[in-house]
Amino acid sequence: MRNLLIFISKYNAFFLFLIFEISALAIFVQYNSFQRATYINTTNEVTGNLYAQVNRLNNYLSLTQINDSLARENARLHNQLKSSYYIDTTARGVVVDTLYKQQYSYIEAKVINNSVNRRNNYITINRGSKDGITKNMGVISSTGIVGLVVSTSEHFALIQSLLHKDSRVSAMLTGSREIGTLLWNDDLDPRKCLLIDVPNHVKAKVGEEVVTSGYSLWPAGISIGKISNLHAKGGGFFLNMEVILTVDFSKLEYVYVVNNKFALEQAGLEAQKKKDD
């Protein structure tokens, strides 16, 4: 026993190394494999508030661009108003709509922390569980798809950006309506993604638009990008196409969190089916 103690104290550096390294790796592996909400991230109140303070300062530097984008967004919304349409019939019956029920609602949020230059990028926004945000909600911006919510605290939410090792989005070509999977390329260019798993016989064109398919958490038809290269990577039976993203992730300021009101029902049904099988 005494010898053991002497041995341990002689090589204490190594044993201390083992203890701390194992605890660090335990935190790392646990967080990565289960996407479990840990306390060590930017949704925690201390880091979140610090980022919010610094972000307030940074806002002044990009006021022009924000004003421009807000003006454009306003114009787009004005175009959709009823009052901007010319009514060409004189008599209209009032229809109380019982057939359509609203499926998606949108919560606007401000980006307070963002990155594009790492292998796995996350975005922090200033809305949290208090505003009705929960895990696994889709996030879009006025120009296209952004990511999905992975963890929330009372006032902040953490978004796994599209620029992440594990991000997968079901995407559709607008011309042929063919479905594929969108993921981030391993050359880590924040402007490009890879559209894979589209069969070889599909005649895709360079410049064709790619939108969401509606099979994942985002509403159908949200724009993703344009095809820039048809054979970006050898793919055998499948086309692997390069897509230029419409969203400029490095200049992200305002995003919308998509609340799918039937998501729970759908997930419950699919889980039940899996259990039955």
């Binding site: 701390f20 660090a24 790392f28 646990q30 060590i40 991230n41 953490l158």
Partner: peptide, 28 residues
């Protein structure tokens, strides 16, 4: 020394959203 390295790594991790990653590197 090890405790400080671990804490330094963890505080960086908190801001980078990568729990444990920097802590493990700093301890090594």
């Amino acid at each position: 020394l090890f405790l400080l390295s671990f804490l330094l790594g963890l505080s960086i991790d908190a801001f980078y959203d990568t729990p444990g990653l920097h802590a493990a590197s700093c301890v090594l």
